[in-house]
Amino acid sequence: METTKKICAGDVRSASRLIRDLEDKLPQARPRLKQLFPHTGKSFIIGITGAPGAGKSTLTDALISEFRKQKRTVGVLAVDPTSPFSGGAILGDRVRMLRHAEDEGVFIRSLATRGALGGLSQAAGDAIHVMEAMGKDVVIVETVGIGQQELDIIHHAHSVIVVLVPGMGDEIQTMKAGIMEIADVFAINKADRPGAKQLQTELASLLNTSALPPSAWRAPVVSIGNLYEPAGFAEQTAELAQKISEHHAHLLISGQLALRMERKALMEITDALKACILEPVLNKLIASGELKNITQRVKNREADPYTEAETIARRFLKSGEIS
């Protein structure tokens, strides 16, 4: 209870510790999040995705400044990849947001992708909840790159920003990853580079909004030039923030926000189910060596994966030893 109060009062130490405990899956952590849950759901959550090197952190940094100008408090969750070899990670995104380090209205937390079991989405969802409970008006989630894992994380957001850079072949990657469909705002970053015009044209034809009903949201495209031409950059990132706010307003007015919240809730339940059914089952099978045996048998065509899975499901669901 003490922790809940502290976090709701905005205490950074308690909040960052709880995020850590949740990531580390300490047994006392989940009950605390349950207590926090009623205090969540009020923040506006923005997802930023795009290829590595697209400048997501730099844009996040600029967006923090814009929201702070509006006196809104900001939480940032920056995801970086875990090394598959050592399990360690270098989390370097916050370097680009250092000027906000001492602003008490800004809370920046780095998150490593960690496990292979797909727990990232839940870890991100947990951290977002903690920031919501802290009372952050806006929470920005910055993904590692473009991929399935990112797509899952992005479902936690109300508005999704996709960052593209000319000349990186992003557009194709983006389409493949199915991110075009979920983008609410496009940012063409480093638009001073050659190829920016072409990227804009391609994007416009891909989006092909002509068939949409008049009331539908048409994902705007904001071009952002060189970070080091301070005046222009500030103006363009202000425009980006403006478009994001417009999208937020659209969600509210059109009733779409409820749909997004539903999408988010579904995501959270799915994540939670994975965490309390799939994960313990897999952990037990790994610990007992059974998973290895099954893998071998499937490999040797002595068994099929479907029957094996059904057998396991029946066994665990009946025995109730999954929690």
Binding site: S86, G88, A89, G92, L98
Partner: peptide
């Protein structure tokens, strides 16, 4: 990183205030 730790790296030219704020936010 190679030892399996999660490492927050914040670059050069930090003030002690920035270092401490980041250390706490990152727990």
């Amino acid at each position: 990183r190679d030892a399996g730790f999660e490492v927050i790296y914040t670059g050069c030219h930090q003030t002690p205030e920035q270092v401490v704020a980041a250390a706490i936010q990152e727990d």
